[in-house]
Nucleic acid binder design. Sequence first.
DNA 1: GTAGAAGCTAACATTGATGTCAAGTTCAAG
DNA 2: CTTGAACTTGACATCAATGTTAGCTTCTAC
Lengths: 121, 121
Amino acid sequence: MRIGELARRTGVSERSLRYYEQQGLLVAERTPGGQREFPEQAVDRVIRIQELFAAGLHSKKIAQLLPCMRDADGGPSAIATPRLVADLVAERERIDRMITELVNSRGVLDDVINAASQDRG
Amino acid sequence: MRIGELARRTGVSERSLRYYEQQGLLVAERTPGGQREFPEQAVDRVIRIQELFAAGLHSKKIAQLLPCMRDADGGPSAIATPRLVADLVAERERIDRMITELVNSRGVLDDVINAASQDRG
DNA sequence: GTAGAAGCTAACATTGATGTCAAGTTCAAG
DNA sequence: CTTGAACTTGACATCAATGTTAGCTTCTAC
């Protein structure tokens, strides 16, 4: 599919998709005229890329990580190096702390929202 | 306490603490010489501010939110307006989506880490 | 072949919290 | 009083993903 459809189907801007390709996170064929042709599988991949961005990973690390993920259509095409594994373990710890913080913040918002709705009966 | 101690005890840089005060997130007395004097309670508050930042709230929204939180030492000093409540509900939904994404990403990292460690037995 | 939608590259802007540096002031202890 | 640590304000820099614009090209359908 071309970039417009991918953008529509993932909710990610064309600008970002081009950026992802530039960073090596997406691979696209090119038509003779030079337009990008993404595989169907790109939809899932974009969604996972977004999740990893949301988790605070930088594009460089995501680029290293992606080949080691098992895709919908098969096993991973690479195994993480020990160095990468160490990085990922650190990221995982960071994500765990982040989740804790998010849960706490969610609780704070809950309190404030509940206090207000209770105040107004 | 002065800013250095607060920075040490919260792990937040002095730069950020000054920024928080400027944004109305922290209130500090001043010594006759003009130095900030933070109350003991600022430690908890800074930690909660950091959590809210981590949750993706902007300083402006946090500033609105803070007076409505119940502090360690008492009830809330304000009740959220309906407008603010609507905002907070939206933020809460965003946080929920964010947690979901984080959990997914954590799973991806787990897979890659496990695949590597298993590969090396 | 032509019109309009969709795509391309490239460059510049934005955002928002935080880092950093400079030049000067205050504080605490001898 | 003096010295050094701690503090002040202000300005400028950074980061990384994304927005925006401009000028040009390709594709699709008639």
